[in-house]
Nucleic acid binder design. Structure first.
Lengths: 188, 188
DNA sequence: AGCCTCATGTAAAAAGTTACATGATTGG
DNA sequence: CCAATCATGTAACTTTTTACATGAGGCT
């Protein structure tokens, strides 16, 4: 039910088309909320007919026209209401943990390769986050720059730090997993 | 699509009824795969009619009879096949991160209470994990006990260690979040 | 000519959530 | 007597996933 709200936040940060949103959901927002373009277009349509968002047809040269969505007053209200509701416990779907426990009834050693590959994915994601942090949250306009602190920036940064902490924790755990799997493989 | 496999793993670890599975999904397995009893009963029915699992009616005294499910050969094959497929990237749904970024367009200070409550939930979960670790993975039958190392135990333990690492990371991050929110609140 | 990116969708199937429903026994 | 636990389900609805579909323009 919160894809609506994830889209609203993204549109508040910057108005955009369904296509652009879909791309954002492959990067920044996508790291803590996944959605495909089919979902996005459907939700956009519903939110538009509910008056939560406004559309503006933007003609473009050299590429198809697009519909740029932005958040309307009703959408802001809906988001605000949602923000004031209790945080719900995350619903987890952790394939790898199931596979690890399942490996006891199959071949634990066979998982090693896959876990190594998986580890690489997370390593790349960490690098990506760290590069983003340097790009967006260091330098002249950061920290103690003149003027009021930008709440949006600070909040985006703390979410990014969460992503970084998550990836580091995951990498350390995957090393633990690999050591355990290798231990089981060499014990026989 | 992997609820099937999560149930198969749980039934391999110990056969049980739909009700018992539902309870397990509130505890151990539930920490990395959520499911309600409605889902579970439906999947059990399907897997039974597909010959993946066997049923045995167990009459009980003082309580309703139950159907005890156990994994059949076909189910084992299906699980094995799944285990050999590539690990899929987790699909994340992280309400709190969306709310934090959304707070930039509302009142960041209003989130503080909720994050504190949320932190408590994770703190309790960490305690619960740690107690489980002491109960199940220390003591006489642990580590260098005589006999072959029990692969199942080791693998369950490494998954639990993942849960512990996750909770610790989350608690540290939530402290970071709280500090950030408080900083924004006092800055005005 | 063929593939990639931009851009927007429809349709069907699978999975997940929420509400409703029943009934026995045990403990306070 | 009332609430909780054990035990199993049905029905309706919402959400998510997967597959299909189209079309223009730029790049090699």
């Amino acid at each position: 039910m919160a894809l609506d709200h994830a889209i609203l936040v993204s549109l508040l940060e910057r108005p955009g088309s369904g296509y652009e949103l879909a791309r954002r959901f492959e990067r920044s927002i996508g790291y803590f909320w996944t959605a495909t373009h089919q979902q996005i277009y459907r939700v956009l349509k519903r939110m538009e007919s509910d008056g939560w968002i406004d559309v503006r047809e933007v003609p473009q040269q050299g590429r198809p026209d697009k519909k740029e969505y932005s958040v309307a007053a009703l959408g802001r209200t809906a988001l605000s209401e949602w923000l004031h509701q209790p945080i719900e416990p995350e619903s987890v779907r952790h394939d790898l943990a199931v596979k690890i426990r399942g490996a006891a009834f199959d071949d634990p050693a066979a998982l090693i390769r896959e876990v190594e590959r998986y580890r690489q994915v997370h390593n790349e994601r960490l690098d990506h986050y760290l590069a983003g942090e340097v790009r967006d949250f260091t330098g002249p306009q950061a920290a103690h720059a003149p003027g009021p602190p930008d709440a949006g920036r600070e909040l985006q940064h703390v979410v990014l730090r969460g992503g970084i902490a998550y990836e580091r924790m995951t990498l350390a755990w995957l090393d633990d997993v690999l050591a355990t799997l290798r231990g089981l493989a060499s014990d026989r």
